[in-house]
Design a protein around this nucleic acid. Structure first.
Length: 593
RNA sequence: CGGGGCGUGGCUCAGCUUGGUAGAGCGCUCGGUUCGGGACCGAGAGGUCGGAGGUUCGAAUCCUCUCGCCCCGACCA
């Protein structure tokens, strides 16, 4: 391909809208353009990468017997009403009506449609298990699209759905997909982790996310440095810390400590003074949050969460504990009115119509401090089990880096940030039951199929690969998804000899199976071509110039290592093959787990 | 949806406070000199200043409304 004819405009300056590195580089390299908030044009270079990754996904899924199909992006509202999601899916679901006034939506996901397909075509256990997938554009009307393709409203996703006869077979299929995902991301050469995750409102027994490690990632991950336990921090089981001995329990001493005007947990603890104490240890204090929970039936309830002063609350855990559809921190004015105290002095004792949940690290704790619901005052001597009638203990705190691992008991947690590029999910019978997707088993019993769903964000994965592979000069493409593998630079198109060699090398390399972009642009200095080549970041750069030809050599440069080799033009194909083999070997060694 | 910010050639921005014939750099076209890490000279093309209304002799600039976009937060498969 001649670069002079390629649809591309590289930019020297960073577009103003671009925040994260991948977005900046993709826009500067002329790969994407924004059309509207969270909606992008995929220009030829980006599209080549996307297609290449799709092919990797197809190859690996087809190995496991998955069948590809394509469902409509526009879906009838009827199906969503049948599954019940028409009312529960929020504004992320873009709804509209056709000319007859019938409800439709743009598909953010395809459980309804695939379930409809299967229930109309599959009747017998003999046809199961079945795993169907598509690679398609999804639309989710995100409240806040951001970071370019990382969180767009429109994006390309591979979604697969499995249908099995029973729970055990669904589990088997889940792990088949889990392993397929490991192969897929390993082939990319990106560093990734498979992490245990929260199953969220969909409900389901378990789920794993595949996270590409990157400092700019939106998700926090904790991984044990000794065993395999790796999880999204939303889900990470907090270890039980050894019970602290705060002496023999005494009665609740109301309004015992007075720290007027002091805000902040640490400062308040330091200011708690009496005859026996010159400040309290932070771990002997407690903190308290009031949450307004909304349930699926529309009802609401107040939940009060109590944690040790030095622990952070995990909202997902609180939400799951309460079984709520949504949960929000009570607005500060309302909370102050409800408790009768300013922020910082609210506490659980004496509050009515609140369901208390206490973090399990306080299971047997006594002699804690807590807000007195009187501005400037704290109680002393809190014993949650005694002073909060009806309270329950549960794991509601955020696990933290350095916490001992509760699984193996030997290691400690290390923290990472990740970009979620895939998820495997055991759905169970939620959709098959509500939509009547059943089969007859060998005993002629009608049963709902047990489902699983499996997503890979195609566009997001390409973005994540860039987030993990770039330097100050531009992108450094992993070989398997590089738009082109070789960037052939003609450094002097005005020289006839150089042109002959450059054109010949282009043909030879392409004949050898390489994908070549030939920068044949005239009137451009070598320096400018080097800058563009670094920005586009193809793995290998081949160069032909009059200076080299005087000595009878052309060059090959590795984008990542910057190593340059010089040799006679007739050795180009052989040298390129060697360079490719070396890059692919490194890639294999760099894979995640 | 709350808070903050920005809309001026393809891109990055200046001009706005204090109203008076719309600018720079990059990119693009043509000619010439250059040619191994974003060369230089000359000549060009390209803009309803996001939109509507208002004030004014006169609005990119002042006022009102509106649309779009970005960031933080909340939300979220």
């Amino acid at each position: 391909m001649k670069q002079s004819k390629l649809l591309i405009q590289t930019l020297r300056e960073v577009p103003r809208d671009a925040e994260v590195v991948s977005q900046q580089l993709m826009m500067r390299a002329g790969m994407i353009q924004k059309l509207a908030a969270g909606i992008y044009d995929y220009l030829p270079l980006a599209f080549r990468s996307i297609r290449k990754f799709e092919e990797i996904v197809r190859e690996e899924l087809n190995k496991d017997g998955c069948q590809e199909l394509l469902m409509p992006m526009v879906q009838p509202g009827e199906l969503w009403q049948e599954s019940g999601r028409w009312q529960f899916y929020g504004k992320e679901l873009l709804r509209f009506q056709d000319r007859k006034g019938a409800d439709f939506c743009l598909g953010p996901t395809h459980e309804e449609v695939i379930t409809d397909i299967v229930r109309r075509n599959v009747r017998s256990y003999k046809q199961l298990p079945m795993n169907l997938y598509q690679i398609q554009t999804k639309f989710r009307d995100e409240l806040r699209p951001r970071f370019g393709l990382m969180r767009g409203r429109e994006f390309i996703m591979k979604d697969a759905y499995s249908f099995c006869v029973d729970d055990a077979d669904a589990d088997r299929e889940y792990w088949v997909m889990f392993n397929a995902y490991k192969r897929i991301f390993s082939r990319l050469g990106v560093k990734f982790r498979s992490v245990e995750a929260d199953s969220g409102a969909i409900g389901g027994s378990f789920t794993h996310e595949f996270q590409v490690l990157a400092g700019s990632g939106e998700d926090a991950i904790l991984s044990c440095n000794n065993c395999e336990y790796t999880s999204n921090i939303d889900k990470t089981e907090a270890p039980l810390v050894p019970g602290q001995d705060h002496g023999p329990a005494f009665e609740l001493k109301k309004d015992h400590f007075c720290t007027p005007g002091v805000v902040g947990q640490v400062e308040q603890a330091a200011g708690m003074q009496d005859a026996d104490h010159d400040g309290m240890p932070i771990s002997q204090t407690s903190k308290f949050f009031l949450y307004l929970c909304t349930f699926f039936d529309g009802s609401t309830k107040l939940v009060g969460a109590v944690l040790r002063g030095d622990h952070e609350v995990n909202l997902v855990k609180v939400k799951n504990y309460a079984g709520a559809m949504a949960l929000e921190l009570m607005p500060i004015e309302e909370a102050e009115a409800f408790t009768g105290a300013k922020s910082g002095f609210m506490g659980p004792v004496g509050l009515k119509n609140v369901q208390f949940v206490v973090d399990r690290s306080l299971q047997s704790a006594v002699n804690l401090t807590c807000g007195a619901n009187r501005t400037d005052y704290h109680h002393f001597g809190l014993d949650p089990a005694r002073d909060l009638p009806g309270c329950t203990f549960a794991d509601i705190r955020m696990a933290a880096e350095g916490d001992p691992c509760p699984r193996c008991g030997k290691g400690t947690f290390e923290a990472f940030r990740g970009i979620e590029v895939g998820q495997v999910f055991k759905l169970g019978t939620k959709y098959s039951k509500s939509m009547g997707c059943t089969f007859l088993d060998e005993n002629q019993l009608e049963k709902p199929m047990v489902m699983g769903c499996y997503g890979i964000g195609i566009t997001r994965t390409v973005v994540a690969a860039i987030e993990q592979n770039y330097d100050a000069d531009g992108i450094i493409w992993p070989w398997p998804i590089a738009p082109y593998q070789i960037h052939l630079l003609n450094l002097d198109p005005s020289n006839a000899d150089v042109n002959v060699i450059a054109n010949r090398l282009e043909k030879e390399l392409e004949a050898a199976g390489f994908e070549v972009l030939h920068d044949d642009r005239e009137g451009m200095s070598p320096g400018a071509k080097f800058k563009d080549a670094d920005l586009l970041g193809f793995p290998l750069r081949a160069m032909v110039g009059s200076r080299g030809l005087k000595e009878g050599v052309v060059e090959l440069r590795d984008r990542r290592t910057k190593d340059v080799r010089k040799f006679k033009p007739e050795h180009m194909v052989a040298e390129t093959k060697m360079a490719r083999d070396r890059i692919l070997l490194e890639l294999e060694e760099a894979g995640g787990r």
